[in-house]
Amino acid sequence: MKEAKKIFKTALEEGRTFVLEHEAKDIMKAYGIPIPPYSTATTADEAVAKAKSIGFPVVLKILSKDILHKSDAGGVKINLKTEDAVRAAFNEIMENAKKYGQEKGIDVDLSRGVFISDFADMGTEIIVGVTKDPQFGHALMAGLGGIFVEVLKDVSFRLIPFTESDAREMLKELKAYKILEGIRGEAPRDVDALVKIMLSVSKMVEENPEIIELDCNPTFVYAIGKGALVVDARILIDKPDK
């Protein structure tokens, strides 16, 4: 896919092995992976205008080649419901990023401003990820978020590429699969939509083997028929000729 290659080239030229959030989302979009509406803004006014066109509430996140862990740098503001809140959040994020740079002794590039996105409704939290194993190559992981993955390490893997039935099987392998089937009177989750995301990620990695790690975390899966959304995405790429 040309879109992805272009983005990876830019990243490497800037000395990054990670892609910025809007870049990650651009790639996802190109592969038909559902994501909440998003945009970027370099000034507070622009952020407000973009928020209005996306619709409140929104999320603002710092976009900088110098910041990988955005929360650590005070670079994330969520559930912003008004124009004033967006304006204030924009300024605060910029301030925090500057401070973060001073603490780390780096000159943080702020020219890209912020990533701005619809604040997605909470769904069943899923993590879909990719790792590159030294022996077996790329593998996709799936699991339910929160304690299931953090404490119980309830995740399953398949080598990329895999088939649709592999994807369904790997979800069924999860101890928490019952949650996706709907427990305590809840409607079953939209497993078809999740499977589609898994297959799209598999295709993305197959066509872009320079991806060495990827997290779609969280991915929200909604009730059956209501789809799924990749809310946050991280992509790490390999340095060429390493």
Binding site: G129, M141, G143, V149, L214, D215, L236
Partner: peptide, 9 residues
Amino acid sequence: ASSHTGSLA
């Protein structure tokens, strides 16, 4: 590994 997925793998 430095990503979440990598650390779980």
